[in-house]
Design a protein around this nucleic acid. Structure first.
Length: 760
DNA sequence: ATAGGGTTAG
């Protein structure tokens, strides 16, 4: 039948060619009335028109629609029957072959008297368009021009528009109008309201609507389940609501199951996940594409890749989400070979696929691979970096301390006109700070127009890691002036700043104010910061008291902080106590063994040292090798302790030798105390001192960069006492600033001094 | 005389 439309079944005269938006009057409803006044003569129209309706019903393309449209204009049906006009208009507004919503709008504006149905349809079309605000403008016109009142169909669309806009007050007003129009018993209206309140973040109100409903259908339950599933930390509630649904005998459908799987995925609950999977099978629920994807997501998040692979392979239809989910499943597990195979097998590699790989590399500590991929992406023609790519890549630079590469990305952003959102701002600040460019971090921070709590917190962290405690606290104060509410992250950074700068009073002050003044509950990490602050300044008793009285289970980080301060101030008993707790929680924490053995060595308890060493060997625990890196000419050079694999190894060691001689002739005596734990022969110790990775990196930097260029070195472990002394001396004797980032903070060596004032 | 709502990744 559709084929008979072309050529037109009614031979249309040439002047009645289909209208185009250009030839139509503009979007102004005054035209509607003009049409009427110009056409006083009414034609008799057969409202049971036998030809038009079947044509509209079978219409499946724009050109067919336009032919029907032309006929209706010519035969005046369009003007004389608001019913037929509305049927035609729906084709333009909602069908998937609609040329555009603008076009539909122009057709709408031609209708002399659009009926309620047409008004609703237009509101509906805008609600799910890119301009949901238009729904409300149309609604105002409707109240003005439409003789009939808005009905039960109008409200769900309006509420949907309010959800899209996350316009809470507007939606509440619509809710009020629905109540006034006695439409608040319509299940569609109420379901829309649940969804609306949830999308504005007001689950309480959503629950209220839900619980007051006289009757609930499957969509009501789904709206509730999905609202809770999207809210963080409500997974348990999702399961309870689901059980409530089964209890009331409502059959779950595929949308229900998407919600519950997403809740499982969020909290990685495989047990529930498998149970839901069995329900899908038992109830014969249609395994729609989205449902399959949600199951896939659940299994990958629960690290159950075999199961995920089975789902994936049994899927009839796969889309890009399916592929990306599978890909990031492998990547997050560190199975990068498998991830790459999926990546290459995908029908097309969109930016999400690249992001999945890049961020997995970055999150698993393979920052170099992440950056390499980012560079590969830039030469690819098929995908363009987006904000997520940039955030991951900047984080990779931050990890590496590769500020040169990072600032290159910053330039790229400026060149491509990427607008700085808060995520990007935070990443940039973090990258510059961790790369040793505190001033650049501050520059970005100051240029920010809008700063959210993370941007502020990142700047506090930046000052903290550079040992600038008071500046960090100042930022914290300014943040409050700007009326930004600090969160748990903010306080971690503030306390960390106090710890690095030895600000005991301030630390105590802010720690105690967290809950009463700011309503932020102290977490284990805040306690460990506090223990660190107290312990570092020798207040060990107070630190221990704090641990004993804390309302949470002291985590490994708390005991680690205590053990750390025992090295300087503690008794052997306190240290052993902390160590015992620490390895009970983290038996494979190599740092703990090294620290404890350092403490034994300090007390000259060599039997303790060898006992620990035996233990480590027995459990196969290896000391993490020291590794330092330096960025020269956009390339990150990495050196392991005692490394001799670099192509310029010979020059480096000659330089090291030269440095040693020069330092010694200036009165330097190597400090070997921190090596006692793992090397016994005296001469080897001295050699080891010269082979520490940060020294190798410094030597390399001295060779490869112009005189008086600052050197920026990144180290994976804490800097040892000897390297710290050497750093200070080199800064003076070679007239070089050395900016050394260790595991915890920065050291600025300049003219023989270090910014940490030897407090670290 | 026509009709509507809820969903997956990064």
């Amino acid at each position: 039948m559709a084929a008979t439309l072309s050529p037109p079944l009614v031979s249309a005269p040439p002047q009645s060619s289909p209208p185009t938006p250009e030839t139509l009057p503009s979007n102004n409803h005054r035209y509607r009335y003009r049409y009427r006044s110009e056409n006083q003569t009414r034609y008799t129209v057969d409202y049971t028109n036998p030809t038009i309706l079947p044509l509209i019903e079978r219409c499946s393309s724009t050109s067919q629609a336009k032919q029907i449209h032309a006929q209706m204009l010519r035969r005046r049906i369009f003007f004389d029957s608001s019913y037929y006009a509305s049927r035609l208009f729906t084709l333009y507004a909602l069908s998937d072959f609609s040329p555009s919503l603008d076009y539909a709008r122009k057709v709408f504006d031609q209708m002399p008297e659009p009926n309620v149905y047409s008004w609703n349809t237009l509101i509906r079309a805008y609600a799910s368009s890119s301009e949901p605000l238009q729904s409300f403008l149309v609604f105002l016109d409707m109240i003005q021009d439409c003789p009939d009142s808005p009905n039960k169909f109008t409200f769900p669309f309006l509420i949907k528009a309010a959800s899209e806009l996350a316009a809470k007050r507007v939606g509440m007003a619509v809710h009020g109008m629905a109540v006034k129009g006695s439409l608040d018993c319509d299940v569609f209206v109420l379901n829309a309201l649940i969804h609306f309140y949830a999308s504005c973040g007001d689950l309480v109100e959503g629950c209220k609507v839900f619980s007051k409903m006289p009757e609930r259908d499957v969509v009501s339950w789904n709206s509730m389940i999905n609202a809770l599933a999207q809210e963080g930390g409500s997974s348990e509630k999702v399961f309870r609501v689901f059980e409530g649904m089964l209890g009331e005998g409502v059959e779950p459908n595929d949308v229900t199951m998407v919600g519950v799987f997403s809740a499982c995925a969020k909290i990685r609950n495989l047990r529930y996940g498998r149970w839901f999977h069995s329900i899908v099978v038992k109830n014969g629920i249609e395994k729609s594409l989205i449902l399959n994807n949600a199951m896939l997501d659940m299994y990958t998040k629960c690290e159950c890749l075999c199961e995920a692979k089975r789902v994936f392979e049994n899927m009839g239809k796969k889309d890009i989400v399916s592929w990306t989910t599978m890909l990031s499943g492998y990547a997050k597990m560190g199975e990068f070979d498998a991830a790459r195979i999926v990546f290459n097998a995908m029908p097309r590699q969109d930016i999400a696929a690249w992001n999945a790989l890049i961020s997995a590399y970055e999150q698993n500590g393979h920052a170099k691979e992440a950056l390499a991929l980012f560079h590969e992406l830039q030469v690819s023609k098929y995908a363009k970096p987006d904000e997520i790519t940039l955030v991951s890549s900047l984080s990779a630079c931050a990890q590496l301390g590769a500020a040169e590469s990072g600032s290159w990305i910053h330039v790229y952003m400026k060149k491509h006109g990427v607008k700085l959102n808060c995520h990007l701002m935070t990443s940039l600040i973090d990258m510059y700070a961790k790369g040793g460019y505190l001033d650049k971090a501050l520059e970005v921070f100051q240029s920010a127009e809008k700063k959210d709590v993370y941007v502020w917190s990142a700047m506090i962290a930046a000052f903290a890691m550079h040992g600038r405690g008071n500046d960090a606290i100042n930022i914290f104060k300014r943040m409050q002036e700007a009326k930004i509410k600090p969160n748990a992250v903010t306080f971690t950074n503030v306390l960390c700043a106090c710890s690095h700068a030895g600000l005991v009073e301030e630390g105590r002050f802010y720690f105690n104010q967290m809950l009463p003044k700011y309503g932020v509950v102290q977490q284990v990490k805040h306690y460990s910061c506090m223990v660190d602050i107290l312990g570092r300044s020798g207040l060990l008793e107070e630190a221990i008291e704090l641990i004993e009285n804390m309302p949470l289970v002291p985590g490994a980080s708390v005991w680690g902080a205590l053990l750390g301060s025992c090295r300087t101030y503690g008794t052997i008993g306190q240290a052993e106590h902390a160590f015992a707790h620490l390895i009970e929680m983290e038996p494979r924490n190599h740092g703990a063994y090294v620290l404890m053995s350092n403490i034994y060595a300090k007390f000259g308890m060599w039997d303790g040292v060898s006992r620990l060493r035996k233990l480590m060997k027995e459990f196969g625990i290896k000391k993490e090798p020291g590794c330092s890196s330096i960025e020269v000419d956009d390339t990150v050079h990495e050196f392991l302790v005692g490394d001799n694999s670099h192509s310029q190894c010979r020059e480096i060691y000659l330089k090291l030798y030269e440095i040693a001689e020069r330092l010694k002739s200036n009165g330097y005596v190597p400090n070997k105390s921190q090596l006692l734990q793992d090397i016994e022969e005296e001469n080897v110790k001295e050699q080891a001192l010269y082979s520490h990775s940060e020294k190798i990196a410094i030597a390399f930097g001295l060779i490869k960069t112009a005189p008086s260029t600052p050197l920026r070195i990144m180290k994976n472990l804490r800097v040892c006492g000897d390297c710290h002394t050497v750093g200070k001396l080199i800064s003076k004797l070679y007239d070089r600033e050395i900016i050394l980032r260790d595991r915890y903070r920065f050291h600025y060596f300049k003219e023989g001094q270090c910014s940490c004032m030897d407090y670290w």
